[in-house]
């Protein structure tokens, strides 16, 4: 066989593998879709929506942390900004339909994300995390002090309204399927981004930044874009959350929330697509179940212990460990 034959042979193998990978993705997406479509018939829709909103938040965070290598410790700011903006607009301007309120909240979070990114992107590692944390604290104090947020009480009674002026979202099932559509669209978008030409550059930057620079990439710009996309999706999660619960509260802006999304992502599997979804599901469930029982006051220490356990003994998270296991045992 000549050298060119070998080359084209290998190329064919690679294409075949890509196809198989695509099929596998499609299958997983299908399973996820069926599960989520049927879920509200088994579980309480509002609880499921809570999970979906946090899952989207974690997916957004993971785009930055898992796929770009930037640990933001200020993502609560975007969740809260989305939530407050949407909550305020829908409460005060009855002419707005729900989706317009959500889009507005998302856009404001995107702009805030751009601001954060421009101020923090040149810092590396822990300094980057610290700058994002500091900025998020500023946003927190802004929300505490501003009259329109209701301060410590939060913003209550946000009307769910009607989607496109047509579909009544007061109905929990309608609301659920709306949240589901948005969540799936964002999930697929992130899936697409990660494997896109842009995603390959992000991967390169994460794995060896100086080398990416020496190959002619202006890495800061790529990072800023990743940050803005991540902040936008986090804002969208917050916007939807405020509609679902008809409430925007300071909890969402607290640094505790920035920590929680890190926990969700790490437990589920950082740098995997399903990981943050699974992580969010688990954490929300644990908080809820424990909150009901006698261990009510022990929620935080227990989550803390899980965090420590994850970091010490299974760093790739649940999905990451499963992937490793599959790879090892199935070729």
């Amino acid at each position: 066989m000549s050298q060119t034959d070998i080359q084209s042979d290998i190329q064919k193998t690679i294409l075949k593998q890509q196809k198989a990978e695509d099929r596998r993705k499609l299958m997983l997406n299908g399973i996820l879709l069926v599960l989520l479509l049927l879920a509200p018939f088994v579980m309480y829709p509002v609880f499921l929506m809570k999970i979906l909103c946090f899952a989207l938040f974690a997916v957004a965070f993971n785009l930055l942390f898992g796929f770009t290598g930037l640990l933001s410790f200020g993502h609560a700011a975007f969740l809260a900004t989305g939530g407050y903006t949407t909550g305020y607009l829908l409460s005060n301007f009855s002419g707005l339909t729900t989706e317009m309120g959500i889009i507005a909240g998302t856009l404001v979070a995107a702009v805030l994300g751009l601001g954060f990114a421009l101020l923090s992107i040149r810092r590396q590692g822990i300094y980057f995390a610290m700058v994002t944390l500091a900025l998020a604290q500023l946003v927190f104090f802004f929300f505490v002090q501003s009259p329109f947020t209701g301060g410590e009480d939060g913003l209550h009674g946000v009307p769910r309204g009607e989607l496109f002026g047509l579909i009544n979202l007061e109905d929990n099932l309608n609301m659920y399927y709306f949240v589901l559509v948005v969540f799936l669209a964002c999930y697929l978008l992130v899936q697409r981004i990660v494997s896109s030409p842009y995603g390959h550059v992000l991967k390169a930057i994460k794995q060896n930044e100086p080398r990416a620079v020496s190959l002619g990439y202006k890495v800061d710009r790529y990072k800023v874009l990743a940050f803005v996309i991540s902040a936008t999706l986090a804002g969208l999660a917050g916007s939807m959350k405020s509609v679902v619960f008809q409430l925007a509260s300071l909890n969402d802006a607290h640094w505790h929330m920035s920590g929680e999304v890190i926990l969700m992502t790490l437990v589920g599997g950082v740098g995997t697509l399903l990981g943050p979804v699974l992580g969010a599901t688990l954490v929300v469930n644990i908080e809820y179940q424990l909150g009901q029982g006698p261990l009510r006051d022990w929620v935080d220490p227990i989550l803390g212990a899980i965090f420590v356990l994850t970091v010490l003994s299974f760093r790739s998270g649940i999905v990451g460990e499963v992937q490793k296991f599959v790879r090892k045992n199935m070729g």
Binding site: Q18, S196, Y198, V201, I229
Partner: peptide, 15 residues
């Protein structure tokens, strides 16, 4: 890819 115009195309498929 560095010389291609597509490095910011986050919507394009990896293929």
């Amino acid at each position: 890819q560095s010389f291609e115009g597509s490095s910011f195309s986050f919507w394009k498929s990896g293929a």
